[in-house]
Amino acid sequence: MYRRTIPFIISIVIGLSYILSGALPEISAWKNLLDKWFQISTAFAVLIGAISLSMVHFRNLRRPERLIYSTTLIIALYGTVVLGLIQTSKGELYQTWYNMTIVPLEAAILSQIAFYITTAAFRVLRMRSLEASLMLIAAVFVMFYNVPVGAAVWQGIPVIGKWLMDIPNTAAMRAITMGAALGASATAIRVFLGLERSYLGGGE
């Protein structure tokens, strides 16, 4: 009952409130209250994640091969929390900590994409069929339309690249997005009507 029925009733009530609140002002005020609860519960969910992460990494402290990584993670996790509580996010040490760790690390992780895309392009973009050849030609125009060397080689490259992005790409994206949006709304309706219960933890 507590594990399935109550969460199930909550999801139906909230789901229907959301569907109807778009149209009915009476329900809109109730939905505003739900929005506040959602914002608060989202913030609390971070705590659940921190507990799970801590459980895994405190356990890893007993494994010598993972000791150094887990220790680093625990220091980073709790160090940031303590610094934030003492100094707020505007404190000098907090800012230095952020600028010298998260900024370069995230930028470095993102920059890996360039390396992986280069190898993927080498491996995948081959003229195996007519469709693959068309894709390769389109890829070349779109790639060079966004960098100065494209226009420097030939003024037509940015024009064709932009056309490819604006017309064929937009048409395909619209079709995929509409299909996906219908799929998403059907999934949402299924949840709201209580026909979908996998989010309650699965099982019969």
């Binding site: 569907i19 109807l20 778009g22 149209a23 009915l24 002002p25 009476e26 809109s28 709304s185 059907a186 309706i189 299924r190 709201f192 009507l193 026909l195």
Partner: peptide, 26 residues
């Protein structure tokens, strides 16, 4: 019952989709 401007057709479409799911299930 007042209804927000521009939302009636959206709400009806969602209700029709829900009704279709129920009808097909039956």
């Amino acid at each position: 019952m007042p209804i927000f401007e521009g939302q009636l057709i959206t709400m009806i479409a969602q209700l029709i989709l829900a009704a279709t799911i129920f009808a097909l299930l039956r």
